[in-house]
Simulated assay, not measured.
Amino acid sequence: MTETPTKMTFHVSSRRVDAHGSLSLCKNAEIALDTDMAGNAEAFNPAELLLAALSACMIKGIERVVPVLKFELRGVQVIVDGVRQDVPPKMESIRYEIVVDTDESDRRLDLLHDNVKKFGTVFNTVAPGTDLSGVMRRA
């Protein structure tokens, strides 16, 4: 008898605070949302949240494989830029740069990047519908 793999589930609740913003809640955390039609510099708008989710996915993926690969690093920074098209509205392209502070070889850096691309949940959700590309480089 084959066991069905356990699936992870996620739950987020968002509510309108006022005409200038909303709030998303998850576990014991909250994120201010820019849902103001004029914009709100104090919060992430939906497109910025998508880019933040992608960058968090990349960093979490690195954290997941660092012990497995015995990869030594001192820090990671992810820079993500997106271009939105108007008709139909969608994120047309996303470019990223993952900067890793490490003394590991270029081959090992490439292996780390491959793992980020292969096993990232948000990465693999966004990639099929978006022109998604980027680089991983040494700090």
Score class of each variant (00 low, 15 high):
121 T>C: 14
65 V>N: 04
134 G>L: 01
106 D>I: 08
93 S>D: 06
2 T>G: 12
96 Y>S: 01
138 R>P: 00
110 D>G: 08
20 H>Q: 12
118 K>V: 05
78 V>P: 02
137 R>K: 14
33 L>M: 15
84 R>N: 10
11 H>A: 15
105 S>L: 13
31 I>W: 04
113 H>I: 04
28 N>P: 02
5 P>N: 03
99 V>K: 07
94 I>R: 00
94 I>C: 01
119 F>K: 05
34 D>P: 06
33 L>R: 02
131 D>G: 03
65 V>T: 11
124 N>W: 03
89 P>A: 10
110 D>S: 11
107 R>F: 08
50 L>S: 01
129 G>A: 06
89 P>I: 09
31 I>F: 07
83 V>M: 03
41 A>T: 15
31 I>A: 06
21 G>P: 02
89 P>G: 07
19 A>D: 13
9 T>C: 06
98 I>P: 00
36 D>F: 05
45 N>K: 04
10 F>Y: 15
92 E>Y: 03
73 L>H: 02
10 F>K: 13
117 K>Q: 13
1 M>A: 07
78 V>L: 05
73 L>M: 10
12 V>A: 11
42 E>Y: 09
135 V>N: 09
47 A>M: 13
27 K>E: 12
74 R>V: 10
119 F>S: 05
12 V>L: 15
94 I>Y: 00
63 E>I: 01
126 V>Y: 00
23 L>Q: 12
66 V>L: 04
60 K>H: 12
27 K>P: 03
31 I>R: 05
48 E>T: 03
19 A>H: 14
21 G>W: 02
84 R>A: 07
125 T>I: 10
103 D>L: 14
83 V>I: 06
14 S>E: 07
18 D>I: 11
69 L>Q: 08
71 F>K: 04
50 L>F: 07
100 V>N: 02
41 A>W: 09
57 C>W: 01
40 N>V: 08
112 L>K: 02
108 R>E: 10
9 T>M: 09
25 L>I: 11
109 L>V: 09
13 S>N: 15
17 V>I: 15
22 S>Q: 11
9 T>P: 05
134 G>H: 00
41 A>S: 15
96 Y>M: 01
80 V>Y: 04
42 E>A: 14
67 P>M: 03
37 M>H: 11
61 G>T: 00
112 L>S: 06
117 K>E: 07
16 R>W: 15
134 G>A: 02
51 L>H: 00
6 T>M: 09
46 P>S: 12
46 P>G: 07
15 R>S: 07
22 S>C: 13
32 A>S: 14
128 P>E: 04
125 T>K: 06
40 N>H: 14
109 L>Y: 08
41 A>C: 10
86 D>M: 12
115 N>S: 14
60 K>R: 13
74 R>T: 13
103 D>T: 15
106 D>R: 06
82 G>I: 05
42 E>D: 15
133 S>C: 11
25 L>G: 07
138 R>G: 06
43 A>E: 02
116 V>S: 04
36 D>S: 15
131 D>M: 11
